[in-house]
Design a protein around this nucleic acid. Structure first.
Lengths: 201, 201
DNA sequence: TATATTGGATAGTATTACTATCGATGTCAA
DNA sequence: TTGACATCGATAGTAATACTATCCAATATA
């Protein structure tokens, strides 16, 4: 497959594919001469993953990190998940108070050192944003949030395929990132329906 | 309060405040002369909301729409939620197939016309992204997602305060948008914990 | 052999979210 | 009252991001 066919099959313009090659998102094709390289099905798949990530709001730089995690999977599944999360979680600054976040995730069975500091910091940052905006989440609602994410996470982790590392890697890395827009979109639909139920159409 | 004090109190630089004024995110202060305006507590609050939204990943243009919904609330709470969702949901293009999305949200009690087409389209777009990336969500996991967002949405809508329109507006508009980062962050922590439980530390 | 395509390099563009500067006007402390 | 400083409003500049366009020499392909 030449680059023009890769473009036709994927719907991604040739200059954009070249850009992804330059940025290291897409591995080079097999060079047959100075001005020829051939691409295979793998490149097409990868290109689709790239588009899905970018359209999910993941930046090019983060996409590269996610793909790196896909390509060079850490020793075990747990570190792999950490790598995927680290790729899409901005690093936090030091002066963020995580005590409230720690208290909150204690309800998830969290104990010190149990997860990536940046991921915990993400909770702290979200709480800070709510607080600064003067928005308070009631305790019982927060309990619902915590309980639901726990159910979701357990169902997700229970479903990690074990037949091949390859499959597990895809599942964990893509699942943690690509499902996010789905969850947010579903929540909006559910909110509109619940609102219609309560306030009439 | 002069603009410099507004800046000091909020931590937002003066040129940025001027930018928000220009963009219509922040209402003008009371003009006392050609080169003087005074700002009140309301401006400080509004500025904090603006920062919280923008740091949640909402664009300036979307933030303006969210704030418009806060300021000129529609007749009823249901339309209000729709306005908030519309402000942060990109409009979808026509050639998106929503049949799969409709089938999915049927589990939420959805029926045709029950929610904003763009919000439903958001589900369709998320499903398309997963599909294009070759990622399949198993039916039982999807059922957990649907069940959880329903529980979350019902708890949220049940908690809408009724004592004042002002409070209801804040709750619905900010709650639907500002809670998103919190949910995603909590899910990541829950995933890491569930992963640690399953695969050992 | 004529035409088209490719790879690689470089430069240009559109958008977003600020950030800086300026001049006329205005405030306030000494 | 005088002089330093602040403010408003307008305009222009900047940094980052994600492409998009153009060019050239080197092949392919018809």
């Amino acid at each position: 497959m030449r680059i023009s066919e890769l473009s036709a099959q994927s719907g991604v313009p040739v200059p954009t594919i070249k850009y992804y090659l330059r940025e290291g998102l897409l591995p080079e094709g097999v060079r047959s001469s100075a001005t020829q390289a051939s691409y295979i099905e793998l490149h097409l798949q990868r290109l689709r993953v790239i588009r899905a990530l970018i359209e999910s709001g993941v930046s090019v730089a983060e996409t590269r990190k996610v793909l790196d995690a896909l390509d060079r999977p850490p020793e075990n599944a747990h570190d792999l998940l950490g790598a995927a999360h680290a790729a899409v979680t901005p690093t936090i600054d030091e002066q963020l108070d995580v005590t409230e976040a720690e208290r909150l995730v204690a309800g998830l069975g969290w104990q010190p050192g149990m997860c990536d500091p940046n991921v915990l910091g993400g909770v702290a940052r979200a709480l800070q944003g709510l607080d600064r905006a003067g928005f308070r989440v009631e305790d019982d609602l927060m309990a619902v949030y915590v309980d639901c994410v726990q159910r979701i996470a357990r169902a997700e982790i229970a479903g990690v395929p074990t037949e091949s590392t390859e499959a597990a890697v895809r599942y964990v890395v893509l699942g943690s990132v690509l499902v996010e827009p789905l969850l947010l979109a579903l929540r909006r639909v559910a909110e509109q329906i619940a609102s219609a139920e309560r306030f009439g159409v």
